[in-house]
Design a protein around this nucleic acid. Structure first.
Lengths: 217, 217
DNA sequence: AACATATAAAGAAATAATTCTTTATTTTAA
DNA sequence: TTAAAATAAAGAATTATTTCTTTATATGTT
């Protein structure tokens, strides 16, 4: 027995779908620039090299409906995607670890939209404290505690060495952080209600290298 | 009718499995440091917060067998994983685009093992040409063509602005590159035999933001 | 105004991945 | 030497995701 009926159960949107959504957004921005007002799923599928029914299913999560023989309204679709992804809200984030990757993300977000607004970075390195990357100031790590008291930031980006990742993550949670974007290799052990999104560069490298080796037989 | 028989057909290893393998490697390195000689799948599963049968299936791709009541030999397993992933070979790579992300990757790989050896970076920015990040020299973009003639590099890392990604990717293919690690948002249209691994930061941000919004109801 | 056509929507089927179950093996202990 | 326990391996079942098929609808054309 399934749960169709008057109680619209909140079905979980598949992660592969979520990961594809920013790609549609990037594509649609370019389409809009070309002055194209309506765009069909088969067209999107052709340009993005994916199945048109996949496109329809993915875009359906935003609630936007297309019209047969016309397609989707470009503007409406972009707006719905941004809304759904939260890219048009100001999602404030702290970043801990102002090393290479941390600095890159700070600089990166000024050009590429990640939907995040990094408002401060923290580090323990005396040489980095007081400097800034773009508009983002690098503060002494201990300032994290006082600043989080005043600012209600929900997102923390973890770009520290692996060895301190668990400790810093726990500090972030104690500071009211609800979601952690983890760039370290550490496996974080945190309360279940904390959202952890791990982005491991080596995972991608692994897939690339293996596929390359496979192709060389 | 399936293909069991004397011809062992090369079954494709699932991408989720490949992505998990570097995580096992990182974990096992720490286990080895603690002097633990044998490690069981249930133990690995507990530490890595995943299903023990998943662990067994994942590790099986390396060909290593565990022993009941003992587990896997730590050293043997690490070796097999490195071998399978190609992390113990020198996988030479070029990087194009010495901006924030490119520089971060160059600096990053000197500390964190990605299984790659970036041997040169290319950029068109006069101010960057001639400088270096760590031990990696940043060369004039046009040098890509002459250098690739002499060096037989198979992997290209693409960290350029989106607008030039397609053109640079085509250049890389013409230089004999077989696999491209694409950090841009561009959808690359390349010959089918070229392996493209796209790593979009905004995909991860999207999942994080959406899950955070969902949890806030 | 009716018809043909392109296309989105909804549902079914197929595929892929994970989790569960059973079986077989190896070691330790009685 | 035998029995018990832990665990890997193999296979089945479940779940998730993608692809395929059908249906309905809106638009342009005759």
């Amino acid at each position: 027995m399934n749960e169709t009926g008057k109680y619209k159960m909140k079905r979980k949107v598949p992660e592969p779908t979520l990961k594809r959504l920013p790609g549609y957004l990037y594509y649609l921005d370019k389409v809009k620039e070309q002055g194209i007002i309506n765009i069909s799923a088969p067209m999107i599928g052709k340009d993005l090299k994916c199945d048109p029914t996949q496109v329809v299913k993915d875009l359906a999560v935003t609630g936007i409906k297309g019209k047969p023989r016309v397609g989707y309204n470009t503007y409406e679709l972009i707006h719905a995607l941004e809304d759904y992804l939260g890219f048009n809200r100001t999602n404030e984030a702290f970043i801990v670890g102002a090393g290479n990757l941390g600095s890159a993300l700070m600089a990166y977000q000024e050009h590429q939209s990640l939907g995040l607004k990094i408002i401060a970075a923290f580090d323990v390195d005396e040489k980095k404290i007081g400097t800034h990357v773009g508009r983002i100031h690098i503060l002494e790590y201990n300032k994290l505690f006082s600043l989080s008291n005043r600012l209600d930031v929900k997102i923390g980006i973890l770009t520290t060495p692996n060895s301190v990742a668990q400790d810093v993550a726990e500090d972030l949670v104690n500071c009211g952080i609800k979601a952690i974007w983890n760039f370290t290799s550490a496996i974080l052990h945190l309360p279940d209600d904390i959202i952890v999104q791990s982005t491991s560069m080596s995972s991608y490298a692994a897939v690339l290298l293996r596929r390359l080796n496979d192709s060389e037989k």
